[in-house]
């Protein structure tokens, strides 16, 4: 299997993986590290309020079903298979499954404030933990599909994700340092967006840069790419919710 072979190769030798955090300047690192300066923390606060708020036809809050502290490590292991879905979902998808099946409320829209607030609140509870993709054989073909998407050329500029993030990481793309694309910090507060955004939004940005047609927000291709990226970053430390340039 292509994926397993290349992943084994990536594991050999000393750790040369670097997170986007390590690639940014000291001023931004400081902004991220200081919870009173990190703008993502405002979303975490709003997320905590949402977590406790009753909603939907069942009139239940997330906190009514989940004990305090039970969300530790959850953001570090998605995408994953989960009861109630025959395909893997990412964390946003998991939140929306609880929303529709448990709370019996309409799903939050992609990149909606509520979804970003809740995912930021959950992500904070995995800060400092290693990325730990599930040991689940059903994810193997999903990761392989993600690897193919990562390595295939696309768009009018005919580039692959790997061209930049595997082969040219650390170099300057028109002044921006190309990171290795490890999803350690999502959702992120991106200065260029002036708001919080999901990993999906980041992937769409790269696709638009390549002049490739982005997948629809609910496309399984994103989940496959995210599953591959998480496996590629296995063991790296979560720094969510992060700040990025």
């Amino acid at each position: 299997m292509v994926f397993l072979a290349s992943f084994a190769a990536a594991q050999g030798g000393a750790e040369d993986r670097r997170s986007g955090y390590q690639d940014m300047g000291a001023a931004l690192q400081k902004m991220q590290d200081d919870d009173t300066a990190n703008p993502a923390m405002l979303f975490v606060q709003a997320g905590e309020a949402l977590w406790k708020q009753k909603a939907g036809a069942s009139d239940k809050a997330c906190a009514d079903c989940h004990a305090a502290g039970s969300m530790k490590g959850v953001a570090a292991r998605y995408p994953a298979f989960t009861p109630g879905s025959d395909r893997p979902v990412d964390l946003d998808g998991r939140i929306n499954l609880c929303r529709t099946t448990q709370q019996k409320a309409p799903a939050f829209g992609p990149e909606s404030q509520e979804l970003l607030q809740l995912s930021a609140y959950l992500a904070l509870q995995s800060r400092g933990l290693p990325i730990a993709p599930p040991d689940d054989a059903r994810l193997t073909p999903v990761r392989a599909e993600g690897e193919q998407l990562f390595k295939g050329r696309q768009g009018q500029l005919n580039l692959s994700c790997a061209d930049c993030h595997d082969d040219n990481a650390g170099k300057s793309l028109g002044g921006a340092t190309i990171p290795q694309a490890h999803p350690t910090g999502y959702p992120i507060y991106r200065l260029e967006w002036q708001t919080l955004g999901s990993l999906k939004r980041r992937l769409r940005n790269c696709m638009i840069g390549m002049r490739a047609e982005p997948f629809a927000y609910d496309a399984p291709e994103y989940v496959a790419l995210e599953a591959y990226l998480m496996q590629r970053a296995k063991g790296m430390t979560m720094d969510a919710p992060a700040v990025r340039p």
Binding site: R153, Q154, G155, Q156, L157, N158, I208, A212, P214
Partner: peptide, 17 residues
């Protein structure tokens, strides 16, 4: 090469609308 093909239309995938 990663240099984009500036005057070619074939062998491209998922080109944006």
């Amino acid at each position: 090469t990663i240099m984009p093909p500036y005057y070619r239309l074939d062998r491209l995938h998922r080109v944006a609308r």
